[in-house]
């Protein structure tokens, strides 16, 4: 019965599917479900042969409840833990609730602080970049989140070579920042000229939290 008390942390994918706890080497859903299916079929056959009647729905539902119970207890255990952990957030500000949830998921999914650090980075952007400025983002897996939190304060549809600010947040995009302040997309190896290289113009570094989180400001 250890599987009932297996923790099931919240992941970003939890909205799409829920993995089952394992029972030995197998999914608990498969093990319990297969036993149930076999039991119902065998019982129904024996019962109807003996009594010339069909199974009582009450009895069937009782049987189903027994099969339901282990995973239901697991569900209660997991969710009681989630509720207990987050209960202190009741009535707390939205920003605090978001930060806590991001950090919980980040810790479980080993996202190296990229999700957890997002609210702080958004605060930094709002501190350094004036409202209604145009911002372009370096391509990155978390851009959707950055855009959501900046959407109400900035113009986000300006191309990078014309935007007032260029933001890098855990981006996988190859970029190079030359000594003269020119920012390049897709640079060649060791700054050699590359055919796909694209100059975005001259920028100064407005704020740098680390190498993954930077705010560039276009030089006038």
């Amino acid at each position: 019965m250890n599987f009932i008390f297996q923790n099931r942390p919240e992941l970003l994918s939890s909205i799409n599917f829920t993995l089952a706890p394992s029972l030995g080497a197998y999914s608990a859903v498969v093990v319990i479900g297969a036993i149930l299916l076999a039991a119902v079929v065998v019982w129904a056959l024996l019962y109807s042969i003996k009594n010339h009647r069909v199974l009582n729905p009450g009895i069937l539902l009782g049987l189903f409840s027994v099969a339901w119970l282990p995973l239901f207890l697991h569900f209660v255990f997991v969710n009681a833990g989630h509720v207990r952990d987050g209960l202190f957030l009741l009535g707390r500000p939205y920003s605090e609730q978001v930060r806590w949830r991001f950090c919980q998921i980040d810790a479980v999914q080993n996202l190296a602080g990229s999700l957890c650090g997002l609210p702080l980075f958004i605060e930094k952007v709002k501190e350094y970049v004036p409202p209604q400025a145009s911002i372009a983002l370096a391509k990155g897996p978390l851009n959707m989140y950055v855009e959501y939190y900046l959407a109400d304060a900035y113009i986000l549809d300006t191309p990078a070579d014309r935007a007032d600010y260029f933001i890098v947040y855990h981006s996988g995009e190859p970029l190079a920042y030359a000594q003269d302040g020119t920012l390049y997309r897709n640079p060649g190896v060791d700054f050699s000229i590359s055919s796909s290289q694209e100059s975005l113009g001259k920028f100064s570094i407005d704020a740098q939290l680390d190498s993954q989180r930077l705010i560039f400001k276009r030089q006038k």
């Binding site: 829920t18 993995l19 999914s27 859903v29 479900g33 299916l37 119902v40 129904a44 069937l60 099969a67």
Partner: peptide, 25 residues
């Protein structure tokens, strides 16, 4: 997704068992 994940507890196993034994009804 129906029979191995914990999306629905063991619902689709329950559903299948009833359909198998009582499809005619």
């Amino acid at each position: 997704t129906l029979y191995a994940y914990d999306n629905w507890n063991v619902w689709w196993w329950i559903f299948s068992s009833v359909i198998i034994v009582r499809l005619s009804v």
